[in-house]
């Protein structure tokens, strides 16, 4: 185990914690994308280049786009105060 592994493990845990505990949903999702990229590096360290490829393309790319798109939908829907519920859902 090299110091790089320690650093990577710390990065993975930190980005996961930020993705799970950030108050702002946008930041949480961006942190989740960063988490996916760190996971891709972890797969490289585990000698699994196939999974690293898939994780980088799917975990970080497609999942991130899907989540951000949904977040954009939540925000668009509550930009107008017509509904009277405030921006509760989009936070």
């Amino acid at each position: 185990m090299s110091p790089f592994d320690l650093l990577l493990g710390f990065a993975v845990c930190a980005t996961a914690a930020l993705a799970l505990l950030s108050r702002e949903l946008f930041r949480a999702i961006v942190m989740f994308i960063v988490f996916g990229l760190c996971m891709a590096l972890v797969w490289v360290r585990l000698e699994a280049p196939d999974i690293a490829l898939a994780e980088a393309a799917i975990g970080a790319g497609i999942t991130g786009v899907l989540l951000l798109d949904t977040l954009g939908y939540l925000r668009r829907r509550y930009r107008k105060p017509a509904n009277g519920q405030g921006g509760e859902g989009a936070r």
Binding site: F35, I51, L74
Partner: peptide, 22 residues
């Protein structure tokens, strides 16, 4: 919030994968 739960679910999944391969 369901979106946050989805994030948590995904992080849990990643943890399972790491455990399995590791």
């Amino acid at each position: 919030h369901l979106l946050r739960r989805l994030l948590a679910f995904n992080v849990m999944g990643s943890g399972c994968f790491l455990l399995l391969v590791g």
